[in-house]
């Protein structure tokens, strides 16, 4: 079992519905977010290309945040999901410093918080909140170990990229381009 998210940048319109869905589902405090939209403009007018994408924790296979956590609060569970146990976290900030995606933040209650791939919903057989609300259906979620899953087939047939692969983290959120 290896969960992964695939996001089609050609279909994303940057509506931020995923951001709001996440904030609502996970009670993210006001002013914070576990996922966000970036808009990248490439080139000089009139030859420009626009790319919109929804970003979040990449649930890296070689997660630097888990490696540097001094208490073991950051850990990897079945399916490769990186989670933080709030009452083991001392709020030292080492994981925030270590994340090349700046995907973690200090919750106002002190502990460090981040995207969980909606682990609580997965256990009930549901999709992550962001994926389930996406109005353009540009987000896909599934098991990479299953060669016939939707995500495996998309990655097999479409050109894709990951964010900052040079950071050596082996990220598991893929962007179709």
């Amino acid at each position: 079992m290896r969960y992964a998210m695939v996001i089609d940048t050609l279909k994303c319109v940057g509506c931020s519905d995923c951001v709001v869905a996440c904030q609502t589902e996970n009670n993210v405090p006001i002013g914070y977010c576990r996922d966000w939209i970036t808009e990248t403009v490439d080139g000089t007018y009139p030859n420009i290309a626009l790319e919109l994408k929804s970003e979040r924790c990449n649930h890296c296979a070689n997660a630097p945040c888990v490696r540097c956590c001094p208490t073991g609060a950051s850990h990897i569970v079945d399916g490769g999901i990186v989670l933080v146990t709030a009452d083991e976290c001392i709020g030292c900030g080492a994981c925030i410093e270590s994340c090349p995606y700046d995907a973690r933040y200090q919750h106002p209650d002190g502990y460090v918080d981040k995207c969980t791939f909606c682990h609580h919903r997965l256990q009930k057989g549901q999709l992550p909140a962001c994926v389930s609300v996406c109005p353009t259906k540009c987000m896909y979620f599934g098991d990479l170990d299953n060669p016939n899953s939707e995500v495996s087939l998309l990655l097999k047939n479409r050109k894709h990229k990951t964010l900052a692969p040079e950071a050596g983290t082996d990220p598991h959120v893929f962007y179709l381009i």
């Binding site: 931020s16 002013g31 914070y32 996922d35 403009v41 933040y105």
Partner: peptide, 12 residues
């Protein structure tokens, strides 16, 4: 290349 947040990411 210009990149910006559109979802208003201003995490303290």
């Amino acid at each position: 290349q210009e990149e910006l947040f559109t979802s208003g990411r201003h995490i303290p």
